[in-house]
Protein backbone atom coordinates (compact mmCIF):
# COMPACT_ATOMS: atom_id res chain seq x y z
CA UNK A 1 0.00 0.00 0.00
CA UNK A 2 2.89 2.37 0.72
CA UNK A 3 3.81 3.21 -2.88
CA UNK A 4 0.17 4.05 -3.61
CA UNK A 5 -0.10 6.36 -0.62
CA UNK A 6 3.04 8.09 -1.84
CA UNK A 7 1.36 8.72 -5.20
CA UNK A 8 -1.70 10.09 -3.43
CA UNK A 9 0.42 12.48 -1.40
CA UNK A 10 2.43 13.56 -4.44
CA UNK A 11 -0.78 14.42 -6.27
CA UNK A 12 -2.13 16.44 -3.35
CA UNK A 13 1.13 18.36 -3.14
CA UNK A 14 0.99 19.11 -6.83
CA UNK A 15 -2.59 20.37 -6.46
CA UNK A 16 -1.44 22.71 -3.72
CA UNK A 17 1.59 23.87 -5.63
CA UNK A 18 -0.47 24.88 -8.64
CA UNK A 19 -3.26 26.18 -6.42
CA UNK A 20 -3.88 29.37 -8.41
CA UNK A 21 -4.25 27.41 -11.62
CA UNK A 22 -6.37 24.86 -9.81
CA UNK A 23 -8.64 27.43 -8.18
CA UNK A 24 -9.04 29.34 -11.45
CA UNK A 25 -10.10 26.10 -13.11
CA UNK A 26 -12.68 25.48 -10.39
CA UNK A 27 -13.81 29.10 -10.60
CA UNK A 28 -14.40 28.68 -14.32
CA UNK A 29 -16.50 25.56 -13.79
CA UNK A 30 -18.56 27.48 -11.26
CA UNK A 31 -20.13 29.46 -14.12
CA UNK A 32 -21.68 26.27 -15.46
CA UNK A 33 -23.53 25.97 -12.19
CA UNK A 34 -24.61 29.60 -12.38
CA UNK A 35 -26.07 29.06 -15.86
CA UNK A 36 -27.92 25.91 -14.74
CA UNK A 37 -29.28 27.63 -11.65
CA UNK A 38 -30.44 30.63 -13.66
CA UNK A 39 -32.19 28.54 -16.31
CA UNK A 40 -33.95 26.24 -13.85
CA UNK A 41 -34.86 29.07 -11.48
CA UNK A 42 -36.80 30.72 -14.31
CA UNK A 43 -38.30 27.47 -15.57
CA UNK A 44 -39.51 26.41 -12.14
CA UNK A 45 -40.79 29.83 -11.12
CA UNK A 46 -44.12 28.99 -9.49
CA UNK A 47 -44.54 25.74 -11.37
CA UNK A 48 -43.32 22.17 -11.37
CA UNK A 49 -41.99 20.23 -14.33
CA UNK A 50 -42.38 16.47 -14.22
CA UNK A 51 -42.78 16.60 -10.45
CA UNK A 52 -39.62 18.66 -9.91
CA UNK A 53 -40.00 22.00 -8.17
CA UNK A 54 -37.24 24.51 -7.39
CA UNK A 55 -36.99 23.11 -3.84
CA UNK A 56 -35.87 19.73 -5.23
CA UNK A 57 -34.01 21.03 -8.25
CA UNK A 58 -31.64 23.27 -6.28
CA UNK A 59 -30.01 20.47 -4.22
CA UNK A 60 -30.20 18.11 -7.20
CA UNK A 61 -28.22 20.48 -9.44
CA UNK A 62 -25.77 21.27 -6.68
CA UNK A 63 -25.06 17.58 -6.15
CA UNK A 64 -24.76 16.97 -9.86
CA UNK A 65 -22.31 19.84 -10.16
CA UNK A 66 -20.28 18.61 -7.19
CA UNK A 67 -20.06 15.19 -8.80
CA UNK A 68 -18.93 16.84 -12.01
CA UNK A 69 -16.29 18.79 -10.20
CA UNK A 70 -14.58 15.98 -8.34
CA UNK A 71 -12.22 13.63 -10.14
CA UNK A 72 -12.06 16.21 -12.92
CA UNK A 73 -8.74 17.95 -12.75
CA UNK A 74 -5.86 15.61 -12.32
CA UNK A 75 -4.97 12.14 -13.33
CA UNK A 76 -6.43 11.78 -16.77
CA UNK A 77 -4.50 14.72 -18.27
CA UNK A 78 -1.26 13.56 -16.73
CA UNK A 79 -1.83 10.00 -17.76
CA UNK A 80 -2.77 10.96 -21.32
CA UNK A 81 0.25 13.23 -21.61
CA UNK A 82 2.62 10.49 -20.48
CA UNK A 83 1.11 8.02 -22.90
CA UNK A 84 1.33 10.41 -25.84
CA UNK A 85 4.88 11.43 -24.95
CA UNK A 86 5.92 7.81 -24.44
CA UNK A 87 7.09 8.38 -20.86
CA UNK A 88 4.39 5.91 -19.84
CA UNK A 89 7.00 3.21 -20.33
CA UNK A 90 8.61 4.50 -17.12
CA UNK A 91 5.31 3.99 -15.30
CA UNK A 92 5.06 0.47 -16.64
CA UNK A 93 8.39 -0.65 -15.21
CA UNK A 94 7.50 0.52 -11.70
CA UNK A 95 6.62 -2.25 -9.27
CA UNK A 96 3.03 -1.04 -8.85
CA UNK A 97 -0.22 -1.92 -10.53
CA UNK A 98 -0.75 0.71 -13.24
CA UNK A 99 -4.50 0.99 -12.84
CA UNK A 100 -4.48 1.12 -9.07
CA UNK A 101 -1.60 3.62 -9.11
CA UNK A 102 -3.67 6.00 -11.25
CA UNK A 103 -6.58 5.57 -8.84
CA UNK A 104 -4.31 6.43 -5.93
CA UNK A 105 -3.36 9.67 -7.70
CA UNK A 106 -7.03 10.54 -8.19
CA UNK A 107 -7.63 10.25 -4.46
CA UNK A 108 -4.90 12.83 -3.86
CA UNK A 109 -6.58 15.28 -6.22
CA UNK A 110 -9.95 14.71 -4.59
CA UNK A 111 -8.70 15.94 -1.24
CA UNK A 112 -8.14 19.35 -2.87
CA UNK A 113 -11.41 19.22 -4.82
CA UNK A 114 -13.45 18.38 -1.74
CA UNK A 115 -11.99 21.47 -0.08
CA UNK A 116 -13.35 23.62 -2.87
CA UNK A 117 -16.69 21.77 -2.82
CA UNK A 118 -17.15 22.55 0.90
CA UNK A 119 -16.59 26.25 0.26
CA UNK A 120 -18.98 26.11 -2.69
CA UNK A 121 -21.75 24.46 -0.65
CA UNK A 122 -21.31 26.98 2.15
CA UNK A 123 -21.57 29.80 -0.37
CA UNK A 124 -24.67 28.42 -2.06
CA UNK A 125 -26.39 27.75 1.26
CA UNK A 126 -25.65 31.25 2.51
CA UNK A 127 -26.86 32.96 -0.65
CA UNK A 128 -29.82 30.81 -1.64
CA UNK A 129 -31.01 29.51 1.73
CA UNK A 130 -30.78 26.20 3.59
CA UNK A 131 -31.48 22.81 2.07
CA UNK A 132 -33.70 20.18 3.71
CA UNK A 133 -31.89 16.93 4.59
CA UNK A 134 -33.41 13.56 3.67
CA UNK A 135 -34.33 11.00 6.36
CA UNK A 136 -31.35 9.23 7.98
CA UNK A 137 -31.53 5.98 5.96
CA UNK A 138 -31.53 7.92 2.67
CA UNK A 139 -28.76 10.19 3.97
CA UNK A 140 -26.61 7.13 4.67
CA UNK A 141 -27.29 5.72 1.21
CA UNK A 142 -26.54 9.15 -0.28
CA UNK A 143 -23.17 9.23 1.46
CA UNK A 144 -22.40 5.73 0.22
CA UNK A 145 -23.39 6.59 -3.32
CA UNK A 146 -21.23 9.76 -3.27
CA UNK A 147 -18.28 7.60 -2.26
CA UNK A 148 -18.96 5.29 -5.19
CA UNK A 149 -18.98 8.25 -7.57
CA UNK A 150 -15.21 8.49 -7.11
CA UNK A 151 -14.14 5.09 -8.49
CA UNK A 152 -16.87 5.21 -11.13
CA UNK A 153 -15.81 8.60 -12.47
CA UNK A 154 -12.21 7.53 -12.25
CA UNK A 155 -12.97 4.55 -14.47
CA UNK A 156 -14.62 6.73 -17.13
CA UNK A 157 -11.54 8.96 -17.28
CA UNK A 158 -9.18 6.04 -17.09
CA UNK A 159 -10.75 4.15 -19.97
CA UNK A 160 -10.84 7.38 -22.01
CA UNK A 161 -7.20 7.98 -21.15
CA UNK A 162 -6.25 4.52 -22.37
CA UNK A 163 -7.54 5.66 -25.75
CA UNK A 164 -4.34 7.69 -26.05
CA UNK A 165 -2.46 4.50 -26.75
CA UNK A 166 -4.19 4.63 -30.13
CA UNK A 167 -4.27 8.39 -30.84
CA UNK A 168 -1.88 11.33 -30.46
CA UNK A 169 -4.12 13.81 -28.74
CA UNK A 170 -6.35 13.43 -25.75
CA UNK A 171 -8.64 16.43 -26.27
CA UNK A 172 -11.03 14.76 -28.69
CA UNK A 173 -11.53 11.70 -26.51
CA UNK A 174 -11.92 13.76 -23.38
CA UNK A 175 -14.50 16.12 -24.86
CA UNK A 176 -16.53 13.24 -26.23
CA UNK A 177 -16.40 11.46 -22.89
CA UNK A 178 -17.42 14.58 -21.01
CA UNK A 179 -20.24 15.39 -23.39
CA UNK A 180 -21.69 11.90 -23.09
CA UNK A 181 -21.41 12.03 -19.31
CA UNK A 182 -22.97 15.52 -19.21
CA UNK A 183 -26.10 14.32 -20.98
CA UNK A 184 -26.50 10.75 -19.76
CA UNK A 185 -25.53 11.28 -16.12
CA UNK A 186 -28.43 13.62 -15.46
CA UNK A 187 -26.01 16.33 -14.39
CA UNK A 188 -27.88 19.14 -16.15
CA UNK A 189 -31.41 17.76 -16.25
CA UNK A 190 -32.99 14.89 -14.33
CA UNK A 191 -33.06 11.80 -16.55
CA UNK A 192 -36.82 11.47 -15.99
CA UNK A 193 -37.32 14.72 -17.91
CA UNK A 194 -35.44 13.52 -20.98
CA UNK A 195 -37.42 12.11 -23.92
CA UNK A 196 -38.28 8.52 -23.02
CA UNK A 197 -35.93 6.88 -25.54
CA UNK A 198 -33.01 8.84 -24.14
CA UNK A 199 -34.07 8.18 -20.56
CA UNK A 200 -34.23 4.45 -21.30
CA UNK A 201 -30.79 4.51 -22.89
CA UNK A 202 -29.41 6.31 -19.85
CA UNK A 203 -30.96 3.72 -17.54
CA UNK A 204 -28.99 0.94 -19.20
CA UNK A 205 -25.66 2.76 -19.09
CA UNK A 206 -23.28 3.40 -16.16
CA UNK A 207 -23.28 7.20 -16.44
CA UNK A 208 -26.33 7.84 -14.21
CA UNK A 209 -24.19 6.64 -11.31
CA UNK A 210 -22.06 9.79 -11.33
CA UNK A 211 -24.81 12.38 -10.79
CA UNK A 212 -28.38 11.20 -11.04
CA UNK A 213 -28.12 8.46 -8.39
CA UNK A 214 -26.82 10.54 -5.47
CA UNK A 215 -29.02 13.47 -6.55
CA UNK A 216 -32.27 11.49 -6.61
CA UNK A 217 -31.48 9.83 -3.28
CA UNK A 218 -30.74 13.15 -1.59
CA UNK A 219 -33.94 14.86 -2.68
CA UNK A 220 -35.97 11.80 -1.74
CA UNK A 221 -37.30 11.04 -5.21
CA UNK A 222 -36.72 7.37 -4.50
CA UNK A 223 -37.61 5.29 -1.43
CA UNK A 224 -34.97 3.47 0.58
CA UNK A 225 -35.39 0.18 -1.32
CA UNK A 226 -35.05 1.85 -4.71
CA UNK A 227 -32.11 3.88 -3.41
CA UNK A 228 -30.37 0.71 -2.27
CA UNK A 229 -30.95 -0.80 -5.70
CA UNK A 230 -29.43 2.25 -7.44
CA UNK A 231 -26.37 2.10 -5.20
CA UNK A 232 -26.03 -1.61 -6.03
CA UNK A 233 -26.13 -0.71 -9.73
CA UNK A 234 -23.32 1.78 -9.14
CA UNK A 235 -21.26 -0.93 -7.44
CA UNK A 236 -22.03 -3.37 -10.23
CA UNK A 237 -20.71 -0.96 -12.88
CA UNK A 238 -17.57 -0.28 -10.86
CA UNK A 239 -16.75 -3.99 -10.83
CA UNK A 240 -17.56 -4.44 -14.52
CA UNK A 241 -15.58 -1.38 -15.62
CA UNK A 242 -12.65 -2.14 -13.33
CA UNK A 243 -12.27 -5.59 -14.88
CA UNK A 244 -13.04 -4.31 -18.37
CA UNK A 245 -10.39 -1.61 -18.00
CA UNK A 246 -7.84 -4.30 -17.14
CA UNK A 247 -8.67 -6.10 -20.37
CA UNK A 248 -8.46 -2.85 -22.33
CA UNK A 249 -5.12 -2.09 -20.71
CA UNK A 250 -3.68 -5.37 -21.93
CA UNK A 251 -4.63 -4.47 -25.49
CA UNK A 252 -3.35 -0.92 -25.03
CA UNK A 253 0.09 -1.99 -23.88
CA UNK A 254 0.37 -4.14 -26.98
CA UNK A 255 -0.06 -0.94 -29.02
CA UNK A 256 2.87 0.54 -27.17
CA UNK A 257 5.21 -2.29 -28.09
CA UNK A 258 4.02 -2.23 -31.70
CA UNK A 259 4.97 1.43 -32.06
CA UNK A 260 8.09 1.04 -29.97
CA UNK A 261 6.94 3.66 -27.43
Amino acid sequence: MRPYLALTRAMLRSALRYRITFLMGMFGMFFQLIALFAVWRVLLDEREIGGFGWAEMRPYLLIGFTCGMIVSSFTDWRMAYRIVEGTVSLDLVKPVDYQFARFAEIVGGIAAEVGVAVVLWAGVLVFTGPIALPPPELLALFALSMLLVVPLKFLFSYVAGLGCFWTHHYNGIRWTQQAVVAVLSGMMIPLALLPSWLATTAAWLPFAGVASTPGLIFIGRVDAAEAARLVAVQAFWIVVLWLGARLAFRGAVKQLTVHGG
Partner: peptide, 13 residues
Protein backbone atom coordinates in the same frame (compact mmCIF):
# COMPACT_ATOMS: atom_id res chain seq x y z
CA UNK B 1 -7.73 9.83 -36.69
CA UNK B 2 -7.03 12.68 -34.28
CA UNK B 3 -8.65 15.13 -36.65
CA UNK B 4 -11.92 13.21 -36.62
CA UNK B 5 -11.82 12.71 -32.87
CA UNK B 6 -11.24 16.42 -32.24
CA UNK B 7 -14.07 17.41 -34.56
CA UNK B 8 -16.34 14.79 -32.98
CA UNK B 9 -15.44 15.88 -29.44
CA UNK B 10 -16.21 19.51 -30.19
CA UNK B 11 -19.47 18.68 -31.94
CA UNK B 12 -20.53 16.41 -29.07
CA UNK B 13 -19.87 19.16 -26.54
Amino acid sequence: ADFWLMALGAAMT
